[in-house]
Simulated scan of single mutants.
Amino acid sequence: MNRSTPARWLSSALLTLGTSAALAHGDVTPQSVDTKSLPQLGAEWRVENPFRGNAEATRIGGSAYNQNCARCHGLEAISGGIAPDLRKLDNECASAKTAPKKAACVKEIDEIVITTMRRGRVRNGAVYMPPFEGILSQEAMWAIKSYLETRRERPM
């Protein structure tokens, strides 16, 4: 079978584009996060963000996010379409009518986010997000969540 010139060009372009897209995300090796300046949380995993509103955690989380999450979720948590836009994580919580409902919603989102960071996401055998447990500490993951709370699309 003889390929036409346009078909060869298209195959070559797609291969180049795929390679360029992969390289555009930079080093996919998880980067360590220095959390020595944060309170240490111990071995038991929290289900609610213990660093909420902590400026140091937010600073560390911003750096950790840029090093480990932005390649898929986008700079400043603004997705370019590869992965979910993390500014929208708790949009539904912002519209909760009462403070207890809002708090329960935020706690539920905290639990979903930390579980996803720890275990990753796999669907039909395809890895959509790698697991970070054993790579990033609990302190680093909660610092990232603290940073994401500053990037909310709909403030609480």
Results as ranks from 00 to 15, higher is better:
61 G>A: 07
87 R>Y: 04
52 R>G: 05
83 A>R: 10
83 A>Y: 02
75 L>M: 13
60 I>R: 00
23 L>F: 15
22 A>M: 06
148 L>V: 08
64 A>K: 00
53 G>P: 04
149 E>D: 13
40 Q>A: 06
52 R>S: 13
93 C>G: 11
27 D>Q: 09
68 N>W: 04
130 P>N: 07
93 C>R: 06
45 W>Y: 11
30 P>W: 01
124 N>F: 14
101 K>W: 12
99 A>N: 06
55 A>H: 06
118 R>T: 09
34 D>G: 03
107 K>Y: 10
120 G>K: 07
112 I>P: 05
120 G>T: 02
53 G>W: 01
69 C>N: 06
97 K>V: 14
77 A>W: 01
71 R>C: 12
51 F>R: 00
72 C>Q: 06
13 A>C: 03
16 T>Q: 03
140 A>F: 02
37 S>Q: 09
138 Q>G: 04
59 R>Q: 15
72 C>Y: 11
104 A>I: 08
122 V>H: 01
139 E>N: 04
52 R>P: 01
10 L>H: 04
36 K>R: 10
53 G>L: 04
59 R>D: 06
85 D>Q: 02
121 R>C: 10
113 V>T: 13
10 L>D: 03
100 P>E: 13
9 W>V: 09
90 D>L: 08
71 R>Q: 11
61 G>Q: 06
50 P>S: 05
117 M>R: 03
75 L>R: 15
44 E>W: 12
38 L>N: 00
59 R>P: 05
75 L>K: 15
140 A>E: 04
142 W>P: 00
94 A>M: 07
9 W>S: 13
3 R>A: 07
73 H>T: 03
152 R>N: 02
50 P>R: 05
9 W>Y: 15
116 T>D: 10
64 A>E: 07
58 T>C: 09
117 M>A: 10
147 Y>P: 02
56 E>V: 07
98 T>I: 11
92 E>M: 15
2 N>F: 15
76 E>Y: 13
105 C>S: 09
26 G>E: 03
1 M>W: 07
3 R>K: 14
151 R>P: 06
111 E>R: 15
16 T>M: 14
6 P>N: 00
66 N>I: 08
128 Y>V: 09
20 S>M: 12
67 Q>K: 13
46 R>I: 07
114 I>Q: 07
69 C>W: 02
135 I>E: 12
114 I>P: 03
122 V>E: 09
37 S>R: 09
104 A>F: 03
91 N>D: 14
67 Q>T: 10
139 E>Y: 04
78 I>M: 01
101 K>T: 13
130 P>M: 14
155 P>R: 12
19 T>V: 09
117 M>W: 08
47 V>K: 12
34 D>N: 15
142 W>Q: 02
142 W>C: 00
111 E>M: 13
49 N>F: 10
37 S>E: 11
4 S>Q: 11
19 T>Y: 11
32 S>H: 10
117 M>Q: 04
134 G>T: 10
103 A>I: 07
8 R>F: 13
85 D>R: 00
32 S>F: 12
113 V>R: 03
64 A>P: 03
